[in-house]
Write a protein that binds this DNA or RNA. Structure first.
Lengths: 202, 202, 202, 202
DNA sequence: GATGAATGAGGCTTCATTCAT
DNA sequence: GATGAATGAAGCCTCATTCAT
């Protein structure tokens, strides 16, 4: 019956509960009960509670974000690259939505967790690829905001009627618009026409 | 020395610790020790742990946001009004920064707390005053994003060198820009002069 | 009923159980049950399990041994002094018999405990006051043996019929004899005949 | 490589860890990990944790001590015999040093272990062969002390610079001296002045 | 206005052991 | 000859809360 899949099942249930209730409020007892297994069984598969979370991070978020950053670092720092970074990041987030939701909503907790540091570093790396450190503060905020928009729009608000994918698409659009504006700004320059990001969707 | 101000001191320390470490990870023991007082003393001033948090909310966030919403509801739903809402909200946030930071970073926890509901309601009220429910999804995301931008820019990122007030100002600017874009979009078409917030950085 | 004496009662029961069963095999649950109190109550009075043991050490063994060493350091390093050290140490041990028995029988455990170090240091201090570092190995062993004799004779063997005080006295006597022999040896001296330790009593 | 020797390797590692850390604090997990084997493998070779210890006792200590006692029982109860017993016991101890060290340092634990009883019996048997039950208490303590001296001198003190064998030799010498003194005393008989050790305290 | 003492619930973790394969 | 998976018991500890004083 419970063949080799227990580890996976633990991860599934844990992610669900962590995302739903938060890390602290989810006890190993609860996870175990949900799986009809003893707490000790969890410890056969994972060394600590934090380890369960770490494994989720490794399995769901580590590779995509690492790959994205690696790819981005080989690209020229053009607007097109930045927009593509956002698009790919949007995909990464959507592909591991519950985990990213968890991170959004448990930031205080994350500060003492290994994955807190990991993620922080990665997000800063992304940010650095998107923004220009010499640009005016407003432009930098635009870029941060681009990232937060994607995080927050998906999880914080529950336009429950709208499917995730549409929200994701809309968030990406707004994020790209923000980065475009920032990019245009830091380039200095005069160009008659506005960054009509809306064109894309037209 | 510690005359009638113990209640206040409890609030101060609690807010500091809640913001720094999160709600769950801050124990009453810790608060009491910091004040050189017994846990039981806390219970003389507050009925429960959650009560301490609620009192902070009442004292720091309730009035400003309630007032803001009340005021906003008496205004016409013009772009100017919306921009003013953002400005005032920016002030409210900055005036109670640690508390808002706490909310940002403890969203999962907030879900089971009274003030979680309170704040959620208020933010949705604000959102409703800013966005047009019939507008395209992208515009709605712009408006949400405006709010999140103000929340997130202040607390999540540590441009530690930049003073809070400048960050606050920049965030407001981006937020207003987002709402302006959204507004322009939902109004359909023709409007002679854009609220070119970008001018400032020019 | 349980007025201010709970702390004391915890110590009493703990010492009894630690001595009887060993440190690891005595659980806080057991101590609590014996006192008809909850485990949490123990934690009101002591920060950790180890703390209970430490407090016993402080209350029963620290002062006597510290005093003894302090006194001994003010004395000349004569045989009389050494014999008096043994006498006083014998008293210290007998006065805190269960604790010393505990130490004897839980040496492996003591290695990871704070009091392990403390006691080790103290015993080595005593040893240094009794033996001569330049003396032949045999004499050094005599001195160590003197100390061990007092420890071991009291607790390891259960001549259950013989009262503690007589055992204590006999052990002291043997210990003093050993140190006397050692002392005579290190004093140089020429004695054609074998180290007839027996001479001493002649 | 690891042919039929796994059982042996388990014993080796277990003895090392038991002696180093104590019985309770050494877990089967730790032993298994050191051997790069699963805990379950240990159970193929031994029925319980205690069984591992017992096997060590059987393989290292049982035969030598049994033989020693058997031999001693065939001998006349002269001083020479006693001194020879000590010599042989010294060899036994030195030959299984880690195991004897373990016993020394885990006496509390040994009380609930099968080998605790075994060893206790054996040591008492030895003691009975060495001492005279009708002798004065002091002489009996001398004999116990002789045994303890050999145990303790080897393991408790770390004259780390002195090689084990020299310590062993010195300890044996002191032990023999103690027994000699005791023997001369219990022989009662005619020697002008008794070993009136009590004089000292007079 | 606050303390001292205690509780009950529950947290994470570790252990020796089992058993089907 | 050994593993993989799991269990049940128990360990230490922390927490929010209560209440008599």
């Amino acid at each position: 019956m419970s063949r080799g899949n227990t580890r996976q099942r633990i991860q599934d249930v844990a992610l669900e509960l962590f995302a739903e209730q938060g890390y602290e409020k989810t006890s190993l007892r609860e996870i175990a009960e949900r799986l009809d297994v003893t707490k000790a069984a969890l410890y056969y598969h994972f060394k600590t509670k934090e380890d369960i979370l770490d494994s989720l991070f490794q399995d769901l978020a580590a590779k995509p974000t690492t790959d994205l950053i690696a790819w981005a670092e080989t690209q020229p720092s053009t607007l097109e690259t930045k927009l593509e970074i956002l698009r790919r990041y949007s995909q990464a987030i959507t592909g591991a939505a519950p985990l990213f939701r968890f991170m959004q909503e448990n930031q205080a907790t994350m500060r003492d967790l290994k994955i807190g540091d990991h993620m922080k570093r990665r997000i800063f790396d992304l940010l650095d690829l998107i923004r220009d450190n010499d640009a005016p503060l407003v432009d930098q905020v635009r870029c941060s905001s681009a990232l937060f928009t994607m995080h927050a729009s998906l999880f914080t608000l529950q336009h429950s009627d709208v499917p995730l994918e549409e929200k994701s698409k809309a968030a990406l659009e707004v994020a790209q618009e923000l980065v475009t504006t920032a990019h245009r700004g830091s380039e200095g320059a005069s160009h008659g026409d506005l960054p009509r990001t809306e064109k894309k969707s037209a």
